[in-house]
Amino acid sequence: MNRIRSWILPVLALIVFAVIPFTASFYYQQIFFYIFLFAGVGFAWNLVGGYAGQLSLGHAAFFGIGAYTYALLAQHIGVWPALLAAAVLSTVSAAPIGLICFRLRGPYFALATIAVAQLLLVLATNQFKDLTQGAAGLLVQGMVSDPSLYYWVALGFMILAFAITALLATSKTGYYLMAIREDEDTAQTVTINTPLYKLYALLVSALLTGVGGAIFAANLGTIQPNDVFSGAISNQVVFLSILGGTGTLFGPLVGAVILEFASDWLKNALTGVAWLGDPNAFAFFLYGLLIVLVVMFMPAGIVGTLTKWWKGRVARVQSQRTTAAGV
C-alpha cells in the first residue's frame, strides 16, 4: 500500500512532463530544459552535498570538464561517443580532486573545491587557450537535429540522474553516506570506510554532472570558460538543492522548478520598473534573501519541511484514531 502511494507523485510528474511539449511554446520548453538539466545536476550534487554532507562549492569543475570534452570531441568521434567521453573524463578527473579535497573537512573542504574550480577556470581561459580557444569560444556540435528534442534529452538525463541517486540513497551506501554526514568520526569507528564512500559518491556525482555539462554545451551551441566553469554554475546547483531540501530525493527538482520560474517571471514582470534601478539585480537580491530565510527558518528545505509536516500530521491522525478507538 505504502509502496504504491510513494509512486503516485513521480508517475504524475512524469505524465505532466510528457504532455508539456505538446502544449507549451518553444520558450517554455527551453525553460523546462534548464529545469531538468539543473535538477539533474542538483540530484548529482545532492549525493555529495546532501547525503554525505560534504559541501562542494566547485561542481562547475565537473560541469566544465564534461562540456569541454563533448565540445572538443563531438565533431571528431561523433555525438554519442563524445557524450560517453565527457562522462568518463569528468569521472576520472573527480578522483584526484576527491583525493585532495576529502582530506579536508568542513569549511576547508568547501574552500578547496572552490579553489579547484577557479583554478580550472583560469587555466581554461589562459594556459590551455590552444585547446579551448579561451574566451573566444568554441562552436559546439548539436546532439539532436531538432532543437525541440533537447527537451527530451534533458528529461531523460534528469530521470537517469534521479534513478541513480535514488538507488544509491536508499541502498546501504546511502545510509553510510548519511552516517558520514551526521558524524564522520563515529562512522569511521563503526568500520565504515569513510574516504572510500565519500569518493564513491563524488565519482558518481561527477559523472552525472559532466553529462549535464555536455548537454548544456550541445543545447547552447557555443561555450566559453565563463559559461561552464564559473562560480555561478556551482552556486546555482547548491542553492536550488538547499531551497528544495538537501538530502531529500525530490528536493533539487522542486528547487529548480521554483528558481527557474521565479527567475523567468521576475525578468518579465520587473522590466521597466524604474525605481528598482536594475530589475535583474532586484531578482537576485530576492534570491539572496530567499536563501538567507531558508537557512534561518527552513533548513530542511521545502521538501524536507513538508515531509516533516506530513509525517507529523499522519502521526497525529493515527494517534487520534487510536485514542478514539480506545475510548
Partner: peptide, 20 residues
C-alpha cells in the same frame, strides 16, 4: 555549512543591492 550558505546569501543581497 549553514554559516556558508547564509553568508553567501547575504553576499548575493549586498552585491545586487549595490547593483540596484
Amino acid at each position: 555549512m549553514n554559516h556558508i550558505l547564509l553568508t553567501a546569501g547575504v553576499g548575493l543581497m549586498l552585491t545586487n543591492l549595490a547593483q540596484m
